[in-house]
């Protein structure tokens, strides 16, 4: 039957072209979903301004991206991994075992993490780390003693806060944002309220107390969100008492639905984050496989373009979208043009 022949031949063509597809002419990027919008903005501008094809950008999370990055060297592996945290020691080791020894680390800027609530909801306009610790930690200080958290309303421990049920939507443990929240908010509150010292006085070692300070209560006062910020936004929309954890860029795109709270008296903004005044922020990175430079056309140009002043600078499109530009951008540009790899 001619139909059978047609099928067979088209299968054969597909098989042949699969093997010939090895020569890749576009840059491939994967990793953090926080970095994804920035990377896709740069990829789009890169495609417009250069003769190279638009780089292919995928998300999947920092860890997943770095795992694919460390699979090895070659055209069937990705060239750049985006990450919302620095690469870990054991990931560097895993990379080295697979032959990925030369990695260029690029810090593209900072991302602010903000606390926002429904625009018509209670007056959550000013928080301190101690407030969030008192609301969300399993053990808190009451009258100088470490007790199981008795607070159900914000006004229970701070008369300036609204008389509303405690309900916080925080990122789930698989998110890099959760780590920043625990370390820059809960742990700081733990120190400030004196709970940390009380734990040590109660017989814990320094390390144990530090771990205990990162714990978050989970009995309905805080809800882990494993999805992305759109899910947190939907929860906030449905609960006027809720406060949610968002990225600065997400908040700035939804100012019609959300109002932001200050942290320790500092309003989150690109300015206050770049000066370091606003305490809850983290650096964003991407990692380049140095062995692919010169093999994959456009890789170095893309990396240079990413950190160029007109893109990642304070007036560039990334800053407009919500990235806090890195004051040390010039050093980063230098590092890429010198192809300076990480030293272990």
């Amino acid at each position: 039957m001619s139909f059978m022949k047609l099928t067979a031949s088209s299968l054969a063509i597909a098989a042949v072209s699969a093997t010939s597809a090895a020569a890749r002419d576009n840059v491939q990027v994967a990793g953090s979903s926080t970095v994804l919008p920035y990377a896709s903005i740069v990829a789009e501008a890169f495609g417009e301004n250069f003769d190279f094809p638009t780089p292919v950008v995928e998300s999947g999370g920092s860890s997943a991206g770095l795992k694919r990055f460390c699979e090895g060297v070659g055209e069937n592996t990705i060239d750049i991994a985006n990450a919302s945290r620095a690469i870990r020691e054991k990931e560097i080791v895993a990379c080295a075992e697979a032959g990925v020894t030369d990695i260029i680390e690029v810090r593209i800027g900072y991302d602010g993490i903000v606390f926002a609530s429904q625009i018509d909801g209670p007056e959550y306009t000013a928080f301190t780390q101690s407030d969030l610790f008192n609301a969300l930690a399993p053990k808190v200080m009451v009258d100088g003693e470490l007790v199981d958290n008795p607070h159900t309303k914000w006004s229970d421990f701070n008369a300036d806060l609204p008389d509303a049920e405690i309900l916080a939507f925080i990122p789930g443990t698989k998110h890099g944002t959760r780590e920043v929240f625990e370390e820059n908010v809960i742990a700081v509150g733990c120190e400030e309220t004196g709970a940390h010292d009380a734990m040590i006085a109660g017989g814990m070692s320094e390390d144990e107390a530090e771990d205990a300070c990162l714990a978050v209560i989970g009995d309905g006062r805080s809800v882990d969100i494993d999805g992305d910020y759109t899910e947190t936004l939907a929860r906030i929309d449905a609960n006027s008492n809720g406060i949610g954890v968002f990225g600065l860029a997400f908040y700035e795109n939804n100012t019609d639905k959300l109002k932001v709270a200050t942290m320790a008296g500092v309003e989150p903004s690109t300015e206050s984050i770049s000066t370091g005044e606003y305490p809850v922020s983290r650096p964003l990175f991407f990692y380049i496989k140095a062995a692919h430079i010169g093999v994959i056309p456009g890789l170095k140009e893309f990396a240079e373009f990413f950190v160029a002043d007109e893109i990642a600078g304070p007036d560039g499109p990334l800053a407009e979208y919500g990235l806090v530009s890195d004051p040390a951008l010039a050093d980063t540009q230098m590092m890429i043009s010198d192809e300076q790899t990480m030293t272990n």
Binding site: N26, S40, V56, E58, G60
Partner: peptide
Amino acid sequence: VGFIASNYPEGVA
């Protein structure tokens, strides 16, 4: 999913 479909394919292959 999680991929930005920004390039038109250049041919059948």
